[in-house]
Design a protein around this nucleic acid. Structure first.
Lengths: 253, 253
DNA sequence: ACTTTTATGATTGATTTTGAACGAAATTGG
DNA sequence: CCAATTTCGTTCAAAATCAATCATAAAAGT
């Protein structure tokens, strides 16, 4: 039984969604093709941000705030993240309605938010909502289907829910910032949520440390001009054009 | 049967959430691999902050919210809670839509839910949703204002949201069960949510251990006749009348 | 019909994971 | 307190898996 590339890759995704994990050897049997072919398929799907390859197979993409994200990163990365987070929190004024996207970049903002008064924070991150409640910040957690493995709230419904709100400011993490391809993330669903939020916000901020600059991920969120970039240190050359629009802020060294 | 790293580590976390502790030797048998491999897995998971290694195995990480809840209560109380929880889970059938109220009584049900298939759980408890996602149960988290101290979702909006659903069964904890005053809880908002859920459910269960019987709290949820009482041991005298309605179930001693 | 492109399968050396061995450290029971 | 036992961490070799390359065959374009 011979199948074509597209067909194979769909089968892989399907099996992945069912089991949460796929094994290379099993796929070779199921799809009736060589190891090399399966490897190539997995490689492609990973490039597209549809799965994460692991030794012996692949797993569903774990979008955010699972501990590894926090601890794997080098301490330098963490420092940059914290500086960006501090800068971001400084943009928040009293009595505003804020959207805080799920993710490690935005999660880093929470410790700096203890003194904010009369601010309502809306978020789709379960962990974030929990932490925000801990520091007595008024919090609204968007309700929707909870993705099995990731604890992030994503999907079509949440986009509809977001349309019921109006935010003063929105803070979001992104995986890629590129002069041509704009702001990008690996997961199309997440990108859709971020876009919806952006449309309901007076002003959108994108948090990205130096390593994300000039990078491109899979799913496009918006053009560079759509929001303010908060970063730790930016390459004047690469983002020169964008820089001239004054929509970029750099954390203190 | 061969498994690999990701799968093994997920299984360890799962077992840890269920039992609170895992033993090295047991894992060697369960996972069918060598001691060394299990050691390495535990080491990795500890580095990721997902567990704490102890001599002979590993224990759950002691978070802020789980500790007091578990340790404040007497072990006897916990045992009763678990028995009631087990009884409650036994009422769930395949392909049902279940509502799980926020609270420790309902949270105790989760460890028994690992084998449920095709069940959709709707909840207003952030912790519950998180744990449910961990054991791969399809979960829908109601979105609304987050109550500061309890991490439960309450308020007027959620009542409206609930009206969009239809549950097969609903499980709720209550603080008071009284022949005259019915089921009661301390918080009127919570009571309103429970009432709304009850109205949308084919069948409602109220979980309450012996200490809650014949007690009255502030806000009334419903009359006794409105739901099935799940308890560990009931005083025939006090609830005699209610008992005759056959709407009471007692956990095995 | 011929070349170019693309998809696939096989091969090879590098990398990762795994299981066993052994001395060090911790726990247990007198 | 000490000895016996268990468990721990490290090292090393075997096994599995990976990435890269090459060759073949089908598909597409000229």
């Amino acid at each position: 039984m011979k199948v074509f590339t597209e067909e194979r890759q769909q089968a892989i995704i399907k099996q992945l969604n069912r089991d949460g994990i796929v094994k290379l050897q099993e796929l070779v049997q199921t799809l009736d093709c060589s190891i090399s072919t399966v490897r190539r398929d997995l490689q492609e799907l990973e490039d597209q941000g549809k799965l994460v390859r692991v030794h012996g197979g692949a797993t569903q993409i774990t979008t955010l705030q699972s501990e590894p994200g926090v601890l794997e990163k080098s301490s330098k990365n963490v420092q940059a993240k914290q500086k960006i987070a501090k800068l971001a929190v400084q943009q928040i004024r009293a009595d505003e309605v804020i959207y805080l996207d799920a993710g490690t970049s935005t999660e880093a903002m929470i410790p700096f938010m203890t003194t904010l008064s009369s601010v309502l924070v809306v978020t789709n991150g379960v962990q974030l909502a929990s932490k925000l409640a801990d520091i007595n910040v008024k919090t609204y957690l968007l309700g929707c289907e909870l993705k099995n493995t990731t604890k992030a709230i994503i999907g079509a419904d949440v986009v509809e829910t977001i349309k019921n709100f109006r935010f003063n400011q929105a803070f979001m993490g992104v995986n890629g910032v590129h002069p041509k391809y704009g702001f990008t993330t690996p997961d199309p669903n997440e990108a859709a949520v971020k876009r919806a939020v952006l449309a309901q916000s007076e002003l959108g901020y994108f948090l990205a440390d130096k390593s994300k600059l000039n990078e491109v991920s899979f799913a496009k969120v918006a053009e560079l001009g759509a929001g303010v970039l908060l970063t730790d240190e930016h390459d004047k050359e690469v983002l020169q054009e964008f820089d001239q629009t004054k929509r970029i802020m750099e954390a203190e060294k």
